[in-house]
Structures are given as C-alpha cells and as structure tokens.
C-alpha cells in the first residue's frame, strides 16, 4: 500500500518520502482526533469506560 503510494507520487525520492510522511502524520492525527474517540463511543467496553462501581446498573455500560 505504502509502496504503491510511494511509486505513484511525483518528484524525486526525497520529496516522495516527505509526502508519504505527511500523509502518515495526517492519518494518525485523523485517527486520534476523530476516529478513536468515535470508536471509543461506539464500543464502550473497549476502553475500560467507567471506573465506577455503578457501571453494572447505569446506562453508561
């Protein structure tokens, strides 16, 4: 996948490496800011959601 992207980017190798790096950083940022919070909300059990004793009876799951 990354090889494919790398091969299809224009410019010399150094520029392409930089572009791939930028894409990777942007992807990680998108994961941290939007995707992971959304995932955590969809599957509350995944994140050890509530550290509260009432979790068994409350709506927070």
């Amino acid at each position: 996948m990354w090889t494919w992207i790398f091969r299809h980017l224009p410019g010399p190798a150094a520029v392409r490496a930089l572009l791939v790096l930028i894409v990777m950083v942007a992807l990680v940022a998108a994961l941290f800011v939007w995707v992971f919070p959304w995932v955590a909300e969809q599957w509350p059990g995944l994140v050890g959601r509530p550290d509260v004793a009432v979790s068994g009876t409350s709506s927070q799951g």
Binding site: M1, W2, T3, L31, F32, F36, V39, A40, V47
Partner: peptide
C-alpha cells in the same frame, strides 16, 4: 510480490493502528 506486499503493508498498518489506539487511550 506486489499483491502480497500490498496485503502485508495493509496488515502491518492495521497492527500499527491498533497499537496507536492503545497509545491514544493511555496517553492522548
């Protein structure tokens, strides 16, 4: 190799994403 490499990179990326999720949860 191209197809396998593509799949391999996809799987590696998936693993990294799972790892990043842990980083996100514990640190971010």
């Amino acid at each position: 190799i191209g197809v396998l490499g593509f799949l391999g990179e996809l799987l590696l990326t998936g693993g990294v994403v799972v790892g990043l999720f842990v980083v996100w949860q514990l640190w971010w």
